[in-house]
Design a binder for these strands. Structure first.
Lengths: 104, 104
DNA sequence: TATAAGGTTAACATATTTGCTAACCTTTGT
DNA sequence: ACAAAGGTTAGCAAATATGTTAACCTTATA
């Protein structure tokens, strides 16, 4: 298997990138993200529900702040119905030296 | 709710960033990513299994290419045990005009 | 050859998520 | 005041993921 750094690993070594990226995504507010892409697609909870073959009460649950038990299949369906892509990333935590070549 | 562009939205408007980022993550090979961070943490399947309180057969399943039914709680546990962060992102698909200010 | 480490697979019981119904709330417009 | 649209919540049955066991496969090494 590969052990080399990925493109994202390199980007993450850039302090500014890391800071802004983390600020946006580290808190994993999935519910807020779902609400956001739903609104961007101009959909109501009921309409989105119909698109992914469920009910508006389920959508409401997914958008609530204290829900955490999402499955990936579900998130993919939601993303697709909103015209969005879902990205999952595992990012190594420990910060190594910031290499010059990794700057944006 | 907010409708403005996020930092990531802006980055995604940059062709080069988008191309490389997508190449790395669009195929959603969760299993490969798990294997990768596990190896980066120098863990065997058995050791990782013990850390997240399950068995090596389960880890093997999560790293297999044709498994898709992950839950977020599980992915978070795996990431944590490997010293990694998990990031979930919904990214709007349609490409608008690339604004000059969005260049990296 | 034998043994151990690392990994894979199948089958099954348990645990968790999902979808559903029905009720409720708030806001907007008539 | 009334109705409709958009959203929230609780309880329950059905669907799905998880953990476990046991067997198996490779590779390396004594």
């Amino acid at each position: 298997m590969k052990k080399g750094k990925t493109y994202m690993d390199k980007l993450m070594e850039n302090k500014e990138f890391r800071k802004r990226f983390d600020k946006e995504y580290q808190n994993l507010c999935i519910g807020e993200q779902i609400a956001r892409i739903r609104h961007q697609a101009h959909l109501t909870q009921a309409v989105l529900a119909k698109r992914i073959d469920t009910t508006k009460s389920a959508i409401s649950r997914y958008e609530s702040a204290d829900y955490t038990g999402y499955s990936l299949p579900l998130l993919k369906r939601v993303a697709k119905a909103c015209g969005a892509d879902l990205r999952i990333m595992f990012v190594a935590k420990r910060t190594r030296n910031v290499s010059r070549s990794a700057r944006l």
